[in-house]
């Protein structure tokens, strides 16, 4: 069945196939470019969520006095986790762009600890994916950050203007 399925439309270099594999997708995305530099990894996923990891490293520090990681890498981690959660819920990759992303920094992450982000797509509309995420450094009930955002699904949205 898999062999006879037509190839799925895909972005250059993004693994495609009849069977969408969130772990494979997340590992691929985490292996290159900005995510590769940050060291973003895959941990787990469910029907509408995915967990990604961001290990602490010296190069990502934002405050040399405390060793606390900068918030930039946390933005990237949450952007990835929420973005992939929309594909997980949809069951396939498709092009989408971030409309907005809002992040509350609940507390500073403990230096040296890996940050885990659980991104969830809580509603999927024809042209929009509504997402949220929690980032923590060991206990999800004691979060480091909380995020909410919206992605616009590009292929499904006909432009109203030229």
């Amino acid at each position: 069945m898999v062999e006879t399925s037509p190839p799925q439309p895909s972005s250059p270099g993004i693994p495609s196939g009849a069977e969408f594999d969130p772990s494979r997708m997340a590992k691929f995305i985490g292996s290159r470019g900005h995510n590769g530099f940050l060291g973003i990894g895959y941990q787990d996923h469910g029907p509408d969520w995915i967990e990604l990891t961001l290990p602490w490293k010296e190069e990502l520090v934002g405050d040399t006095e405390t060793g606390v990681i900068a918030s930039g890498p946390i933005i990237s981690l949450l952007d990835n986790a929420t973005s992939i959660s929309a594909w997980v819920r949809h069951g396939a990759f498709r092009p989408q762009v971030t409309l907005d992303l809002r992040i509350d920094y609940v507390r500073a992450a403990v230096p040296g600890r890996t940050i885990v982000a659980r991104g969830e797509c809580y509603q999927l509309r024809k042209s929009m994916a509504f997402v949220r995420a929690i980032a923590h450094d060991g206990d999800i009930n004691d979060p480091v950050a909380h995020a909410a955002g919206i992605f616009i699904i590009v292929g499904e949205t006909e432009g109203a203007r030229p």
Binding site: I14, N35, A70, G72, I75, S76, L78, D79, N80
Partner: peptide
């Protein structure tokens, strides 16, 4: 994604 700035890098 290939050929584009990462949204997180822009945010950072």
């Amino acid at each position: 994604r290939p050929g584009y700035l990462h949204g997180g890098a822009i945010g950072g």
